[in-house]
Nucleic acid binder design. Structure first.
Lengths: 168, 168
DNA sequence: ATATAAGTAGCAACTCAGTCTCAATAGAGC
DNA sequence: GCTCTATTGAGACTGAGTTGCTACTTATAT
């Protein structure tokens, strides 16, 4: 049973690794082992993630060759955001990252119960944003729209719990 | 020359102080001097502010009677958010507060150049939010919409600077 | 291949916002 | 005023993220 709202990846000419190499070269930076490990890791699955998780996986629980230190995880995440490969957002005072390169623009529903992020796309939102911006002579470059609430599953769980309580 | 988009305050039965007292009583909490000082201070002007500013004004540069300690500033801010008097948001990894009680719902344009927040209201946004939410069987309770970009004044400044450079 | 120069990794120390502990104090109700 | 309990303030602490520094890689020239 597939999610009818799941977002499709966008076709891109270069792999994330290649794009990152372009970026590094353009900045006179070097393609190093830790940077390779990190980007490989980050683009091997498509979930939202935070620095802490990466540090756990790459720094704490890692044996020799593919270990990356804490500062380097942070440094490289910043470079990935800077280069447009990742998008960073703050949710509940916590930095969360997601793929940007090769992934369509979208916004999020945030379930305050299970902390899950649900993605959605809306052309109308973009239009609305640009309309409001132009009304204020504001040159919009990006936006962050997060809807807080309770997702379908958590609503069901809560209802079930309530019913159970009612029986007592 | 007044801002044609300035938001109007909403009429409310109780003053912020009175509302806060209601809240405190309902929670078995006490109406103390530091809490009074803080809320008085916070509702005496209508800008966006952060904990740091309050600490500066009330904790560092304050003489005797209306001094409030750093932990108490943080504690009370949380209570003010909890009680619905203030709204908290994260911008650039930094917590920013604004009046909620007696102030209409709105969202923000954030100028990445001068760090200013411009408020705007949009009924359409609310409708759009609820439409998207219901499409996902999501029960929306609130949202945060921040448009990043450059405000009118900063655009002018930048253009001027560019022109100056062009002359060289 | 090899030397060389410059960028980078890792460590540990640091910063900064926010929280916690705890002893002393001050509200609220009697 | 007295008592009980919430609260304050000081300082210690936490956790995310950053920085200074030295040893090490990487890129490039030799």
């Amino acid at each position: 049973m597939s999610d009818p709202f799941a977002l499709e990846a966008v076709d891109v000419a270069l792999s994330p690794m290649e794009r990152f190499e372009e970026y590094l070269k353009s900045k006179g930076k070097r393609i190093t082992q830790p940077r390779r490990i990190l980007i490989e890791h980050v683009f091997s699955h498509h979930e939202h993630f935070d620095a802490d998780g990466l540090i756990d996986e790459l720094s704490h629980h890692s044996k020799g060759a593919d270990r990356v230190s804490r500062p380097t995880v942070y440094r490289t995440l910043n470079e990935l955001v800077e280069s447009g490969l990742l998008r960073k957002m703050e949710i509940g005072g916590r930095a969360v990252y997601e793929h940007d390169y090769g992934y369509p623009d979208h916004d999020h529903l945030y379930c305050t119960q299970c902390q899950n992020l649900i993605e959605f796309q809306s052309a109308e939102l973009r239009e609305l944003r640009d309309k409001v911006a132009s009304m204020h002579n504001f040159r919009a470059t990006s936006h962050r729209f997060i809807v807080n609430g309770v997702c379908e599953q958590c609503q069901k769980k809560t209802r079930r719990k309530k019913r159970r309580v009612d029986l007592i």
